[in-house]
């Protein structure tokens, strides 16, 4: 085992003295976060998370997000219908933003993570994997915009007497996709990107 470890959080390179005893964890000298040589089982966990997210991506977009009942009429809206109605209303900026954050970036992120984790052991595509990971890190904050979508839903529910809003199947799948993709990037250890197959064996 290597003595020198870098903290994944603050980047401080430090030395680990002696063997780590059973039941103990290694904490960073500067930021006190747990440090690993490599995250445990990182590749396969990330693959599991992103596969689950990829499966749920379909119901989240095909099923209605909300069912609004207004004076005896019920209106069901999927994400895509919401985007197209924004677009037709002339709200091109908001429509485009919602399209990017709700449809485009989650798909990109899920596909990217699946590609990276599946091809980790390949000697080829090393550069490509690094590029994809960079893109994922760039689009990651934008995925958080779904929180605002949920806020809009809540404000609709608050109308109470006038209209009743039921969450559809889509919104649960959607929430699951958001959480799963988040977990997917969190569990992924970026150091795996440059590890060769032999190096990975060493850290297992």
């Amino acid at each position: 085992m290597d003595k020198v470890v870098a903290c994944g959080t603050c980047g401080l390179v430090q030395e680990v003295d002696g063997e780590v005893p059973l039941g103990a964890v290694v904490k960073c000298a500067r930021c006190n976060f747990q440090i690993f040589h490599r995250r445990v089982d990182s590749g396969s966990r990330t693959l599991a998370f992103s596969l689950a997210a990829g499966i749920l991506y379909f119901p989240s977009n095909l099923y209605p997000i909300v069912t609004a009942e207004y004076q005896g009429q019920s209106v069901q809206t999927t994400i895509f219908q919401g985007i197209s109605s924004l677009w037709h209303d002339g709200q091109y900026f908001i429509g485009g933003l919602v399209f990017c954050t709700s449809l485009f970036t989650p798909a990109l992120k899920i596909l990217g993570l699946i590609f990276i984790t599946l091809t980790l052991n390949w000697p080829r595509f090393k550069k490509t994997r690094a590029w994809i990971y960079k893109i994922i890190r760039i689009i990651d904050p934008w995925n958080m915009l779904e929180v605002f979508l949920l806020a809009i839903c809540v404000s609709m529910v608050e109308m109470g007497e006038v209209a009743t809003v039921h969450p559809g199947r889509g919104v649960f799948s959607f929430a699951a996709v958001v959480v799963l993709t988040l977990c997917g990037t969190l569990t992924f250890d970026s150091r795996l990107l440059w590890d060769s197959a032999a190096e990975r064996k060493k850290y297992e």
Binding site: D41, S44, R45, A48, F49, A52, A53, I55, L56, L180
Partner: peptide, 10 residues
């Protein structure tokens, strides 16, 4: 347990 997630999603 982590692999139970995609199974549950499916």
């Amino acid at each position: 347990f982590f692999w139970a997630l995609p199974v549950a999603a499916a």
